[in-house]
Design a protein around this nucleic acid. Structure first.
Lengths: 351, 351
DNA sequence: ATCACTTGTGGGAGCGCTCCCACGGTACCT
DNA sequence: AGGTACCGTGGGAGCGCTCCCACAAGTGAT
């Protein structure tokens, strides 16, 4: 006779109790089997597993969350609008890395945009309700209050680019300084000397570090650093385009440019085209990120590769470790962890 | 004296009970205030709201979900890989529409990819656990088992393109047939007669309807329909490129092409370029979707605009209505709802 | 004065799980 | 033989909420 007995509120879905009855064991034992505790005999485990299969038992997440005070969910917070998110390959690669690493887990990933004030307030509320066990924070600006909010709420968090050298949160980053250096050194090797730099948003620490790398590479090679060759961008294509217009006006004799992102490089290329400058004959161009854009550009763009997917994977690993650490209320991380991954220059036809 | 009394498990967060004590009322009353019940006197409501503010009370979602048997979350399920998701403007526009409409709500949106078997199994498990109150299903293929699974689990769902004319789920779609007709009629108006069609994946109903519209438009104008001018694509740029190569080989005399998506049109354009055909002088080109790609193409692409963001908004409205309907176990929708939105041809330089 | 209804309110019961204590059984020491 | 340890197990208590019944107080018709 098919199971049609115990009708409970949740549309007749079997509960732990029913599985226990079916398997002829206690509630606790079923819970132990479900949660993979080793303290169960093989025979009992088999019996429980059979009962689970027969009844098609699926644990009730809400009940578990309430009893255990955890959610088995983490959030990937993007402090940008949806539009920027889709325009920027950085985010999609990051998401891919996180997603891949996550698929081994029972964890659920939530994607949350916090591009405007309204969304940010909503997010704050969300975090205050502790609806996630941890947070992955991507591309944060220097003055962002979010990291401090997380710290205050004692929510485990990992940040993808530290806000400063003194970042207190666990962070994963690529070697922005070294990456920028390699880009500039590459251009110097190619015989270029009047090398411009289109920076990223300077309230992003990584963008500052790239400027530092640019400066130091020039200085160490015995070249003067001319501030007229440095123009701030904002990581958008339009911004890259505008920056290059300004640069050409101020220093029409420039013979190379290093852009703080591929997207900005694409904008710069557009401007160079319109100005009749050939790439790379007249102006050599180097980007940053080595995203799909770089490979598909005409000419293909030399770029500094960041291992973004790997950064995503590492971030998740660190976050899961922090969440696990926190469970039995341990000593709590005095040791802050900062992972820095190496970059690699990928030379293509644009330089 | 600051509140430092009742330390509960959840890190000292106040509970309903504590708010009730503070406001000098019962638990039920606080619950009523929180949930906006009208059956509370103004004075009591004010007292409760004050207590909530003082204590910084935030409801515990897990407890609410357990007691009320709902999650206040819905899922947007994309039966594609992350890569396809980011490559296809359709999805991002859809997400934008849904997100905009959702921000008025307390609902949480989950983005779930189900591109491979593993992810699909995970999703099935997820749905079986009833972790969401409803599902938005985007771009489903004819043989996808997901809709039936949802029906079987009695989870409210809205689908973005019906699987067939006999779709049983509530659906939102644009007028694919009419959109295709308008594209072909436009090309005929421009004096083109040898009009090719690069189709989308034919296991997507909407793509079939576009083929129907293409055929009927030609026939009604008194032109024969030559199957050699119809080439299947797969909605990817590479597929569009390949399709155009095949078409040029079979019918080198073609003077126009209507592609089932802008992305495929971009691929076709590439092939036409390589073959030395000028757009629009030699071959006029029309796409579908009117995505950002169309505006930025060189030359700008004539395209059939679908109101994708609005589709997203409508889908969400319908889903929320279904969820609300279901709460007091009503008669249950014998009236299936199918919304069809109009398309509009946007003429640009490519035709 | 009585009844019938409405309105606002309190609080018990219960959602399905995890945590943890207690208990019987076995194994291994003294 | 008794003592000690640990293993596998059962089940009570409790997580923070919603649902709903009960009840007091008010309102108006009879």
């Amino acid at each position: 006779m098919a199971s049609h007995g115990a009708r409970n509120r949740s549309g007749g879905r079997p509960t732990l109790e029913e599985v226990a009855a079916r398997a002829g064991v206690g509630r606790g034992t079923v819970s132990r089997v479900i949660n993979g505790s080793p303290r169960v005999s093989d025979a009992t485990r088999a019996a429980v597993e059979a009962a689970v299969a027969e009844l098609g038992y699926v644990p009730n997440t809400a009940a578990r969350a309430l009893a255990a005070n955890r959610t088995d969910a983490i959030a990937l917070v993007v402090p940008e609008s949806e539009t920027r998110f889709f325009a920027e390959p950085y985010f999609s690669d990051m998401l891919k890395g996180v997603g891949a690493e996550l698929s081994d887990t029972e964890m659920q990933l939530l994607l949350i945009f916090a591009g405007n004030d309204r969304e940010r307030r909503r997010l704050a509320q969300y975090l205050a309700a502790h609806r996630v066990d941890g947070v992955l924070l991507v591309s944060v600006h220097a003055d962002d209050p979010l990291p401090d909010l997380l710290a205050q709420l004692e929510i485990p968090a990992v940040i993808s680019g530290p806000r400063s050298a003194a970042e207190t949160l666990t962070s994963v980053d690529s070697d922005n300084y070294g990456g920028a250096r390699s880009a500039v050194e590459h251009l110097l090797d190619r015989g270029r000397t009047r090398i411009a730099h289109i920076t990223g948003r300077l309230d992003v620490y990584g963008a500052q570090r790239r400027v530092d790398g640019y400066r130091d590479a020039l200085r160490d090679a015995g070249h003067p650093v001319d501030d007229l060759l440095i123009e701030p961008g904002d990581f958008t294509e339009e911004g890259g385009s505008r920056a290059m217009r300004n640069l050409l006006e101020r220093r029409p004799d420039l013979d190379a440019a290093f852009a703080g992102s591929d997207v900005m490089a694409a904008g710069a290329r557009q401007t160079l085209r319109e100005a009749g400058r050939r790439i790379p004959q007249d102006v050599a161009l180097v980007g940053y990120d080595d995203s799909a854009i770089a490979r598909h550009m005409d000419p293909p763009l030399t770029s500094v590769r960041q291992p973004i997917e790997e950064m995503g994977r590492r971030m998740l690993d660190l976050l899961l470790a922090e969440i696990a650490d926190r469970r039995p209320a341990v000593s709590r991380g005095l040791e802050r962890r900062q992972v820095v991954l190496a970059t690699e220059l990928v030379a293509r036809a644009s330089s």
